[in-house]
Design a protein around this nucleic acid. Structure first.
Lengths: 215, 215
DNA sequence: TACATCCCGTACACCGATGCTTGAGTTACG
DNA sequence: CGTAACTCAAGCATCGGTGTACGGGATGTA
């Protein structure tokens, strides 16, 4: 009477299923795992609610092979997101945040843009599969970096301080994501995107000249 | 063997099922129809992928009653969107677009914001249920109004013309939608939103002082 | 009051996606 | 080269959502 869903079912295969990255797996298995992770990103990019079958197909792998590596759809999405964010970190931590705040911001944005363009759809998918807290947790590092920079800019007078940093942060996200969507829809040339993005953000964020009297 | 789905099944009730707004329906039926339309908006706002059952519940109406008014989920979403956009039009067409472009833009945005805040989630839901062409078609009027205004602003030198209008348009959408999401998530006070929105958009759109030499 | 209209619960067929099982075929690696 | 690890097809149970069928009961309208 297996009505109770599943619990320790697959326990015999590999112990915690997570955090066994480069353990005792066969070389070919690791390769497949990587293929699947990559395929997850591209499949979701094409179709925001791709099924597990779709992803497996995209990876050129059987659906069951996929389930051998990731017990559940949610786990797959999560690990794909973790993986993407780790690679993202590798890129972003190389960006110099020193010097003029506006220039640093521009550097950070144009580096981030590439990542958003690639993994933005995955992020969106993850948002309806994982608890919001987990998402925020995973983005913590990247978000903190941006927030710190914006704060410094505000203190130094480079960025306006009549708006909360959180709003500057969401604006940044939102504009980058919007550009990514436009690119996906074929309405925007990917090469134009970086320029378009900070053509909007820089003038929006730098100190406003005059107009604070309102109500 | 009714394997062929459904075709003329419900034909006996009302002829084309669409465009029978204030026909020979009973007063009480019309009232329910309205309740359902309204409930669709609020239900989707709470939960972006609410089921037909959820919506019926939100309307305080049986699921079958709902199917009596709308044959299919897609039809429900579409009619709800049409309805929302019609009301939106009623509001927006009252906004004066004369005078200084920037001021007119500000007026138009703050009127639009209310609508986006209310029906933005519905729009998002519609995007994965209706063909993109239909969506664009429905938004045509509202979009044209905004585009025309932006174009005039560019011609008059009030708005920058180093970016295509389409990009200004998407930026506007994206920022308003972002604000709506933040409000829904409880991270932004609805009263602050209008100010936050054009605090970003105005400086971003008005003529850039200097920095056109780049590449 | 009479009757056509409408409400709405129950029950059912269908569909697609998830997740599990089995069993046999491959393939890496010691 | 032999074995353990891995792949993968086919098939099944389950779940949730959509749309249909029916039929008694309420209610607006004439």
């Amino acid at each position: 009477m297996p009505t109770k869903k599943a619990q320790a079912t697959r326990g015999t295969r590999r112990a915690p299923a997570t955090a066994n990255r480069a353990a005792n797996q066969r070389a070919d298995a690791q390769r497949n795992r990587a293929k699947i992770l990559a395929a997850t990103v591209t499949a979701i990019r094409k179709n925001p609610d791709a099924s597990v079958a779709d992803i497996a197909a995209e990876a050129g792998v059987g659906r069951m092979t996929l389930y051998g590596h990731f017990q559940t759809r949610a786990e797959l999405i999560e690990e794909a997101l973790v993986d993407s964010l780790e690679r993202g970190e590798d890129v972003l931590k190389e960006v110099s945040l020193d010097g003029e705040a506006a220039a640093a911001f521009q550097r950070l944005v144009s580096s981030s843009w590439v990542l958003v363009d690639q993994s933005g759809a995955l992020l969106a998918a993850a948002q309806k599969e994982l608890p919001a807290a987990r998402i925020r947790e995973l983005h913590e590092k990247a978000e903190a970096r941006m927030r710190t920079l914006l704060l410094r800019g505000q203190r130094e007078g480079a960025f306006r301080n009549d708006l909360p940093v959180t709003w500057l942060l969401t604006t940044t996200h939102v504009v980058m994501n919007g550009a990514a969507e436009e690119v996906r829809a074929g309405r925007l040339d990917p090469d134009d995107a970086p320029w378009f993005i900070d053509a909007i953000l820089l003038p929006a964020f730098t100190r406003a000249a005059r107009e604070t009297e309102d109500a």
